[in-house]
Design a protein around this nucleic acid. Structure first.
Lengths: 197, 197
DNA sequence: CGCACTATATGCGTGCCGCGCAAGTTGTGA
DNA sequence: TCACAACTTGCGCGGCACGCATATAGTGCG
């Protein structure tokens, strides 16, 4: 995670990936959800300062590049949960970890709009959010002392959490006066962990 | 739903869509998860008895065609829940409806393997399963008398249910001796509706 | 029944894209 | 300093999504 922990090659690689992803998302936002087809691979590569061929070494589709940021963020969900104190109840730990992960910093409205509300990006967006499920399920299993392969609880809970995050994002985008994302997210996650409510 | 309820055009259209989707999935299964690139659009169209251009009038990618069956099934989730008696508790109704929908008939192992375990299909597969969420959320909101736009509960629950169905499918595929899909599905859904367990 | 209208199927052409291949370039480790 | 490995880039090929124009088939009315 820390740059110092990687050698030069790994750092350059990560920097290039982020540059391409950032450029792709920025260009997509400029064209809006209805002009995605106008975002050419050549433009993304040029904006990121690499050749089109290099862009293709990192991503195999524009959609993947545009959603890379969300994907990378979701991949850290397991780590986020593990960083919570071990004696905290599962529900509280998950809520706190997800709020920490997804509201630090506060999400960019334009970027999230592009990713979640563009039909052509739907598949990649779902992929990006669902990338939290695997690591999350492992962390939940570790925390509850259950076996991932015998018990469905960790995987189902992880999927429910990922779904709640998606729903929270959509709701936060669609209602202008929903307040900070953290509040919406907490509300959504409470539906998962307090079913009687 | 019933063929008689549609005029000739609509019936032909549906038949063509199903023919293409069926051909696409069949050819994909023949090549296996690692040979997806070998399934050419031309082959799908020929196998379905239409021109490649017509195939493209129905689907805008091979992936979409291959997952069409799952997508169509998921779209019926709302209707399935609505067909349950109104006085049944939410959890029971959802479980019964989803088991009715997704185990009638028993899922085809090869087809589900192809759709869920092929990396290139991951996005479309997620899309296919998530298509249940909208209708399901509406049906849940109607059943619980809540407002979809004010309360996140229906949408979050729908997402959790869709996630549980996915997890159940994966688990059913990966463990050879998991018994009938209905049992696995019931187990997965119980994690959503009986959180204390 | 026959006719005007509309929806669907098909052929063709175009531009873009993903990726294999083979240099060229830059970091790495002894 | 040098040999090796990783990464970048240019080139070219096969394939695909889709617009447009045309042929065909279903529909509803007089």
């Amino acid at each position: 995670m820390n740059d110092d922990a990687m050698d030069l090659r790994a750092r350059n690689k990560q920097a290039t990936r982020e540059a391409i992803g950032h450029a792709a998302l920025r260009l997509a936002i400029e064209q809006g959800p209805h002009g995605l087809a106008l975002v050419r691979v050549h433009d993304i590569a040029t904006a990121a300062g690499v050749s089109p061929r290099t862009y293709n070494n990192y991503f195999s589709s524009r959609e993947e590049a545009i959603c890379a940021f969300q994907a990378d963020q979701s991949k850290r969900a397991g780590q986020a949960l593990r960083s919570r104190p071990a004696d905290e109840p599962l529900g509280q730990a998950v809520v706190a970890a997800m709020i920490e992960l997804y509201t630090n910093p506060e999400p960019d409205r334009a970027g999230l709009r592009m990713i979640m509300l563009t039909p052509e990006l739907e598949g990649e967006a779902l992929k990006a959010f669902s990338m939290a499920e695997g690591p999350l399920a492992e962390a939940i299993a570790a925390r509850t002392g259950t076996d991932l392969r015998r018990d469905l609880f960790p995987a189902v809970t992880a999927a429910a959490v990922a779904g709640a995050i998606r729903v929270a994002g959509r709701h936060w985008l669609e209602s202008a006066d929903a307040g900070p994302f953290a509040a919406v997210l907490r509300h959504a996650l409470s539906c998962v962990f307090a079913p009687g409510a």
